[in-house]
Write a protein that binds this DNA or RNA. Sequence first.
DNA 1: TCTTGTGAAGTTATTCACAGCG
DNA 2: CGCTGTGAATAACTTCACAAGA
Lengths: 209, 209
Amino acid sequence: MRPKKIPESTIKRLSIYLRELKSLSNEQIKFVSSQELSERLGFSAAQIRKDLSYFGQFGRVGVGYSVEELKDIIEGLLGVNRKAWKVAIVGAGKLGSALASYSGFSNRGFAIEACFDNDPKKVGTFLGSVKVENSDKIPTVLRKKEIKIGMIAVPKDYAQKVAQELLKGGVKSILNFAPVKISIGKSVHVRDVDLSTELEGLAFYLSRE
Amino acid sequence: MRPKKIPESTIKRLSIYLRELKSLSNEQIKFVSSQELSERLGFSAAQIRKDLSYFGQFGRVGVGYSVEELKDIIEGLLGVNRKAWKVAIVGAGKLGSALASYSGFSNRGFAIEACFDNDPKKVGTFLGSVKVENSDKIPTVLRKKEIKIGMIAVPKDYAQKVAQELLKGGVKSILNFAPVKISIGKSVHVRDVDLSTELEGLAFYLSRE
DNA sequence: TCTTGTGAAGTTATTCACAGCG
DNA sequence: CGCTGTGAATAACTTCACAAGA
């Protein structure tokens, strides 16, 4: 089963399953069925089972899944069980600052290890515990610290250039908050989060009621 | 063609088309073909044409689409051409503040009109130009101001309660940044943005290289 | 020629439904 | 019995490919 193609949507859900399993673990719940997960998360039970089946057989017939075991398995799949992934943020504006101090990341296996801005007034200041460095240092700092994930939180006209610098620094994944498409070789995974696009999607439904 | 079911994914792309059309408009470009849009956005030309065809026939054979005209049409479809949609933010922490001052929203037809927090120390302070009010005022303020969109930027344990208050206030759409599933009647559209989930998705690919 | 709009075909994702096992 | 795991069926989405218009 392992070497089969895994839908992108399955990966996104894995992360949500993990989130819920951590809650269940906190609630001291030991076992959970796909049906129960379904009710808590709003995905169908069949989908949950199918998603998990891409990776192996983790359930116990008649019982369900061991919360702790499944949690560990998904953490392993996502690679968030070992040492925290190092992340760099480019852009120390409002959004960059909010990202830098967002506790959700450290709780989930990510550590902000570097931060950059091209504004001399911001260079040298601190975002949380990380000192802001000049953007021209991106490639060297990233290589030195072996950072593989970058977040882009700069105005849209700079985003493409920043992405190229991240690439030079050896980054393998980019979370892009700038409202533009990043064009970059497919050695790098790019995921876009455009907050206005999300709102516009909601507005579409609103405006036809 | 109008009363046919429109894929969710088409809606998301509409917003991205609009974003690009605004750029093209700034660049004084008058016409654009699906092929050109395809190259700029990374979706296939056929997909762009098909997406647009759900709503009507906007192109000119042999020429492409009028940038201004298509921009206006998509703005109309998304309902972002008329008076700005009013938005409320609940949670005046780091993320809430960043959202409140994010210029991307006002540029794209959304206006932050109310902001709430349950921390008395925050009530009365200003987020941008909006005064923070106590969360127990959510239903009344929202009804008075006729706000139909809410953003949840509170810790996860409060998110569900906040959603219910938003519902009482007559909200029709929610953009939820808290890392929990919101359970609410389907009279309300909920879209979740979990930043850690996005990062975990990237980590999945990283950890198998 | 170039380009749209669109049925048809192809692909991908989700749900069904049930065998098999505890 | 209850529940998983999964092939088969269905649904959803994307791409193909081409007629027709400028």
